[in-house]
Amino acid sequence: MPSETPQAEVGPTGCPHRSGPHSAKGSLEKGSPEDKEAKEPLWIRPDAPSRCTWQLGRPASESPHHHTAPAKSPKILPDILKKIGDTPMVRINKIGKKFGLKCELLAKCEFFNAGGSVKDRISLRMIEDAERDGTLKPGDTIIEPTSGNTGIGLALAAAVRGYRCIIVMPEKMSSEKVDVLRALGAEIVRTPTNARFDSPESHVGVAWRLKNEIPNSHILDQYRNASNPLAHYDTTADEILQQCDGKLDMLVASVGTGGTITGIARKLKEKCPGCRIIGVDPEGSILAEPEELNQTEQTTYEVEGIGYDFIPTVLDRTVVDKWFKSNDEEAFTFARMLIAQEGLLCGGSAGSTVAVAVKAAQELQEGQRCVVILPDSVRNYMTKFLSDRWMLQKGFLKEEDLTEKKPWWWHLRVQELGLSAPLTVLPTITCGHTIEILREKGFDQAPVVDEAGVILGMVTLGNMLSSLLAGKVQPSDQVGKVIYKQFKQIRLTDTLGRLSHILEMDHFALVV
């Protein structure tokens, strides 16, 4: 994948999101292997301009796509893939009243899908469409860049269908997702969380590099694949309309690839034109409109599966009536509230959605109805927002919020430890010299600072030695090549209790 991002070429006709291997024109390309080798690009942008032909009021008969309808489940399912879809609609009884809503608040519980998330729908649909058009064949390999849930859905379907599955996901995604993927037989590649989507090191860039190296491999490409919004247009939206008897006044959905909100909203605009569509985008993402909503100094966020630093091709923002931004604290607070007060075992993005819903639905009156999409299960986040310690460490809970008995030293300040200034190293000294210094002084790690004293990161003896043994660096290389740029900081005025929580999850903390 090139470091400079080429513009994806656009073909003359058809839909841009065809499933299957992508040609340089962004659509299915038939021909000899030699032709494909000559024409197939190194990668295709996940934010390529959409060429979708959908228009409100256009006859369904003019759609270029294969459409399906929700099917009634048999008493005995032939395999677990038949437990994807037909998820329950559940009334939220307490939270709406707590925040003064007059309307009825309903939750579409997508964590009841077989793999635990709304992404099971698009995973199965992308595979079925690729099999139907002859792209996927027995023994082929599926590769997908994902925040985890699409990966789980694909790995689940691949396990049943017999495909090899490789999932490329950023490091910030939970260990629970990784464990589930491994249990399903998927191979996992992790990428830096802070890598831009168009960087060769991003999950998108690495996935395309693997595709170019592995024979008979395919990126189904949830960011561009029409099967993504079509899955929701054909099934999720129809289920909502049936469950609500066609009567709903507002739908609120958090947005990642945009397939969920695009597919549902398009069908609702056709069948229930008075329904307002509300999009939820986390602070630090750029999906919301108008652009002024996205202006923030924050560039990272903890909530998973929603928000991006690019506009995915499948996201149709014209069908969203209003956007709201959400933050991590309210997302996790509301997710825990949904679990504790409503018994809905949902993930953090569901918290984002409901946090926005109780604001947006203030305009609705008694007798009206708001539906929220709860995308995934708490299963993926047992060591994250479900953990009091994690919430404390991230600053989303305060010590006084917890009532468990603490040891005698818990409320003492870090400054009472009488710490001395640490050994520091410059980023320009060599790895070999740094190892000598650390061994001589008896230290395992040291902060790396520039000549102005600005902290650049941390270097550890173990990481340097393993990097040297693996051949990633040489003793003569500058130590700046092996620094940890993500590390926890703590102030002298913070409590030892807070430091204790940090050290339970990290090997060190830097006192500043």
Rank of each mutant, 00 (worst) to 15 (best):
V180A: 10
I44R: 13
K30W: 09
G162W: 04
P12R: 12
M89A: 05
V180I: 02
D221T: 08
P59C: 15
M250A: 06
H66R: 09
K25Y: 02
A157Y: 08
A186L: 02
Y163M: 02
L230E: 14
P59S: 12
P2C: 15
T235M: 08
N212T: 11
A186R: 04
V178N: 02
R18K: 13
A48V: 10
A8R: 10
A231I: 07
A183R: 02
D179Y: 11
L184F: 05
K25P: 10
E171H: 10
L220F: 05
C165A: 12
S61K: 02
G57L: 02
K177A: 02
C165Y: 06
S61F: 09
K267R: 09
L210G: 08
R161V: 08
C244I: 02
I219L: 08
L81Y: 02
L210T: 08
D120W: 08
E128R: 02
S63T: 08
Q55D: 02
R196T: 10
R91A: 07
S61C: 12
G258E: 06
G115R: 13
E104M: 02
W43S: 06
R58H: 13
H17P: 08
H66W: 09
I167L: 10
H65F: 05
K75S: 12
C275L: 07
E131A: 10
T87L: 02
I240C: 02
G85F: 02
D35V: 11
R196E: 05
E131Y: 10
P21L: 11
N212V: 09
G153F: 07
K98C: 06
F111Q: 02
A8G: 07
H66E: 05
V255L: 02
D133C: 07
S123G: 05
H66G: 09
H218I: 10
E131G: 08
A183W: 06
G31A: 09
L251H: 11
E40W: 11
L42T: 09
C109I: 02
P88C: 11
R125I: 02
N216S: 12
P49G: 04
K72T: 02
C15P: 02
D179A: 08
V189S: 10
A237I: 02
L248F: 11
V178L: 02
S217D: 02
P64W: 02
H232R: 06
I122P: 02
N216V: 02
A159I: 05
M173A: 07
I219S: 08
F112D: 02
N225H: 02
R91I: 07
I92L: 05
D179Q: 02
A186Y: 02
C109L: 02
A157M: 09
L156G: 06
G151F: 06
D234P: 02
G100H: 02
L251I: 10
D198W: 07
V255K: 02
L105E: 02
G185V: 06
K267I: 10
K94M: 12
P49S: 10
G151L: 02
S19Q: 12
S147V: 02
I76R: 02
S175C: 08
T235A: 09
G259L: 02
E40C: 02
I264T: 09
E187D: 13
L77G: 07
K102R: 14
I76Y: 08
D245A: 02
P200A: 08
R164A: 08
L268R: 12
N149V: 02
Y223C: 08
R18L: 10
I214M: 09
I122T: 04
